[in-house]
């Protein structure tokens, strides 16, 4: 009985997966496949950023550092021809990024607000310059990361990881630790009064977020096969990571998924459609301005509000009054 009920869903699911595969790999030389992988990787990283930026409310401008550490933890051993499993390296990269975040949290999380933002930005700049200037770290020429991983396998794994991370972050933010994140964001002084150690709470958000950014960075290298200081540590990577949550809805899990998809889509479209350098940055800036003018909390909360309004709930009206 139960099996019979489930069967249509299973068949539908299999058809959907088959259609997805055909769509991705059948037609245009894997362009769409690459695009979806990049979206998934940035979603993983953005969810990590969102833990600190969205849930704890401490805006970081330097999460590319953790992305880059993950990337180079994969890139350097392969560049030096060490025989280590690439997938193992990707997870090691996440761990190294988390460890680095834990160490750097000691000075960095002593400050908050604007000084923290500047500090994280500075961290990114330092890392890029160090890697550019070090021939032993392959300097500007970067590392070609040849690996024999099956691209279909990698694509599937990254897609599944993206879903696991998204569901995991949602799960975490409903747990005690996640509630503490939000408590620290809402009223830090009251959070302290109920026994929350603000510094430890922020460190937890930074370290978990760094793990996710490092994981995304390592997988990015495995998929793209190349890493250099610009693709690892440049501030545009940090901006790509934080732009998704901002546009989709900061502090929301689904908003991050939507926002990041839109950001990467626009970046890719602008790169080919706008005939001048930096066109994609301009397009993103324009998008951000429009979103901030239309719905400051981001697209996802904005749409949810609109849906409530259209369905004619009075609750929303009182909210608007308050805002006015």
């Amino acid at each position: 009985m139960k099996n019979n009920k489930l069967r249509p869903y299973i068949i539908a699911g299999l058809i959907a997966i088959a259609a997805y595969m055909v769509l991705l790999f059948g037609s245009d030389g894997g362009y769409l496949s690459n695009f979806i992988v990049y979206v998934c990787l940035f979603i993983i990283a953005s969810q990590g950023w969102n833990l600190l930026g969205g849930y704890v409310g401490e805006i970081s401008f330097g999460h590319a550092v953790f992305w880059g550490i993950g990337a180079y933890t994969v890139g350097l051993p392969i560049g030096y021809d060490l025989n280590i499993s690439p997938l193992l390296l990707a997870f090691a990269g996440a761990a190294v990024a988390a460890l680095f975040a834990w160490i750097i949290s000691y000075p960095l999380l002593r400050v908050r607000g604007f000084p923290f933002l500047v500090g994280t930005y500075g961290l990114g700049v330092v890392f890029e310059k160090v890697f550019v200037a070090s021939p032993k770290l392959f300097a500007t020429k970067g590392v070609f990361v040849a690996n024999d991983l099956n691209r279909f396998f990698l694509h599937g794994m990254i897609f599944v990881l993206m879903i696991v991370v998204t569901v995991g972050v949602k799960w975490l933010t409903d747990k005690d630790l996640g509630l503490r994140f939000k408590a620290v964001r809402d009223v830090p002084e009251a959070a302290e009064m109920v026994g929350v150690n603000i510094y430890h709470t922020k460190t937890a958000a930074l370290v978990i977020g760094a793990f996710l950014c490092g994981l995304a960075g390592g997988l990015y290298v495995l998929y793209s096969g190349f890493i250099n200081p610009t693709t690892a540590f440049d501030s545009s990577v940090s901006i790509s990571i934080l732009m998704g949550p901002y546009i989709g809805g900061i502090g929301t899990v689904l908003g991050t998924v939507f926002g990041t998809s839109i950001v990467i889509a626009i970046q890719e479209w602008a790169r080919s459609a706008l005939p001048f350098t930096g066109g994609q940055h301009m397009a993103l800036g324009l998008l951000l301005i429009i979103i901030m003018m239309v719905s400051r909390e981001g697209l996802f909360p904005g749409l949810r509000k609109l849906a409530l309004k259209l369905s004619g709930k009075t609750k929303d009206k009182t909210k608007e009054k308050k805002a006015a």
Binding site: R180, D186, V187, A190, V196
Partner: peptide, 30 residues
């Protein structure tokens, strides 16, 4: 030592039950 503020400072994005959960899992844990 528990305290209530003069100007209310609840965790606004959480429900009352979650407000209490934060306290129970932090200070109450000890």
């Amino acid at each position: 030592i528990g305290r209530c503020f003069q100007m209310v400072k609840p965790f606004n994005s959480l429900t009352p039950y979650e407000n209490a959960r934060v306290a129970r899992s932090s200070a109450g844990h000890y």
